[in-house]
Design a protein around this nucleic acid. Sequence first.
DNA 1: AGGTGAGTGTCTACGCTGTCCACATCCACC
DNA 2: GGTGGATGTGGACAGCGTAGACACTCACCT
Lengths: 213, 213
Amino acid sequence: MVRAARSYHHGDLRAALVEAGLKLARTGGIGALGVRELTRSVGVTPNAAYRHFADREALVLAIAVEAQDRLAQTMLDRMKAIRADADPADRALARLRAVGEGYVHFAMAEPGWFELAILTRDEPGDDSPQPTIESRVAPPYQLLVDALDGLVEAGVLTPAQRPNAEVACWSTVHGFADLATRGPLRAQDPPILDALATYVVDTIIAGVAAPPR
Amino acid sequence: MVRAARSYHHGDLRAALVEAGLKLARTGGIGALGVRELTRSVGVTPNAAYRHFADREALVLAIAVEAQDRLAQTMLDRMKAIRADADPADRALARLRAVGEGYVHFAMAEPGWFELAILTRDEPGDDSPQPTIESRVAPPYQLLVDALDGLVEAGVLTPAQRPNAEVACWSTVHGFADLATRGPLRAQDPPILDALATYVVDTIIAGVAAPPR
DNA sequence: AGGTGAGTGTCTACGCTGTCCACATCCACC
DNA sequence: GGTGGATGTGGACAGCGTAGACACTCACCT
């Protein structure tokens, strides 16, 4: 099924565009994902992209799905480093920290991909054939939900403290990531940002687990 | 100095453009601030704008400064409602809540202006003659700093808890505002969002004021 | 083998954008 | 009462996303 080097038909233009998009977005963010620039980098005419994507937004969203998966993967990688012989409560806390710190570190290490990973579709728009950003539960979000459920199981959180906890956690790491990559903190040195990141994550966890309320 | 209705020279095109920009951005966000659309709404040629602004970005930033001031103003308005006869610690806490809830409510009530208010200049860029987003301390940020200092004064926070607290608070409200206006929460009903907003603000305050750490 | 139709890429063109350059106009001041 | 600097106009250019008509190629079916 793999086609010879360069025939009239490309072979798998869709996949090639997504791959090229990841490469371009890594340094240039979403702004670098122009239809012309993208197709040019694959050696194809701009309109060829329209055989595989309805419009530019659909193309960008397909790339965004890939970026979102990579974000989830870095969270999972951080979880692997958790010692299996630790106290269950500590392990549950460490998993939540892995989610939060994975989020902000991914944002700082790969701001271009991060910008894609947090994309949300502009308009409601009906169901679409391809898996798009909102037609699936975002894997990173699912990891957050699981981590919080784990905290309840481990007895770190009371069931009464559980509702809406994902909103608080997500808001905090999301906001910090935005401030650190595009906002006023973006000029800070990486070591400082790292320290701030762990402080911020610890603080929101402390808030979620704070006494009664 | 006020000029007759419509002569060759406009009178105060710069101010007129900023004012028109606020009106356009209120419903359309930054995307509605095209040079052509903006100048058209003032009844002037696109190039006329270039007599007052270096490029489109400078024009948008001038409008952003105005939006940022309005954000600060809604925070101040919320502070006015605080009872003056309350316990100092309670009043200090109420001021911080006014800052946080003012931030998220402004974002939800005026998403277009909010998008402008949180703009940050793209490139380092040298100093510029006009007051731009980063050549001044953002008024909303200053209010946050003052409110946190007030918490230390009132004894709610220990001096050891003070450092970096603005980063945690800001991250949380900023992240929530983004999720609620452009992110996955943007479809939620306003009453639900309001409840989430106060929960999120309370949670981060609890985290900042959490026992030792 | 030979046609046929679906799939895929190209070419041309349109309207939109931000921005540059040369020119027209107006106002303040000497 | 001219003159110069500030301000607005007109036309043009390159780049963008995208639509429509056309060209090529391949898989399949007789």
